[in-house]
Amino acid sequence: MRTKPLSIVLRHGALVIVCFIMLVPFYWVIKTSITNENIYAYPPRLLPEAPHLFNYVDVWYFIPFARYLLNSVIVSAIAVAGNVVFNAMAAYALTKHFVGKQSVMLLFLSCMLVPFQATIIPAYLITAKLGLLNTYLGLALPLMSTIVCIFIYKAAFEAVPQSLIDAARVDGLKERQVILRILMPLSKPAVATNVILAFIWSWNAFLWPLIITREPIMQTLPLGLARFLSYLEDTTGALYAFAVMVLAPSIFVFLMAQKEFIRGLTSGATKG
């Protein structure tokens, strides 16, 4: 397609405006987090005045940030590991043909529609029954499998040519090895997508940790943020410094695994 220079300029212009709208909130939060001005003064200053990083130091000590960070990392690690393993297994099973396949798929679909906020009491009772209250496993269990990722895997597995699988089976590989040696390596992007989505949803979980943790030291970052929000509602920079410190890991993980994530979605969601 011949691209006239004018349309390139227009396209760049439009994209710059879109990016400006997406980035303004970040700039505004970072600016507020590095100044101590009275946030209710009007007019708000566009450029930070007397910037300093001490709000971040305050946040590190007011709320046990290191401990909350550790908890969040452990819970996310368990959730991501669980996701990768369970979703792959479920997806592999769904590539097979069996009697109740249609109803199982329907079941998965309907699970997507159950709003989590409404299932807190029974979910709590079940976790209490399992004796997982106030534990990392208890925190991560509901997040250890996600339906969207199962279908992403299913599409990725079906994209692998059947001849390859038959050849492997001829060589005498058992089912488990078929998955590990052949299917998984070939659908590495789908794994990346699953890792990022699982990380995002487990890292940002807010209501479930609130209910399940009893001791303050077991809380995760979103709870720390909500706690901060309530207690020091009106602090100038400290609350927004905390918000920045909570956002940084999500952005960091995304930027690190961005290429695989996009390719995973390409081969996954749409072809399936």
């Binding site: 909130p25 943020l225 927004y240 999500s250």
Partner: peptide
């Protein structure tokens, strides 16, 4: 451009709520 537009998705909606409440 793609990365910038997508960067807002992985964020914690509690933090996004605080940011937009402030905007």
């Amino acid at each position: 451009y793609r990365a910038i537009v997508f960067i807002s998705y992985p964020l914690m909606s509690v933090a996004v709520g605080i940011i937009w409440k402030w905007l």
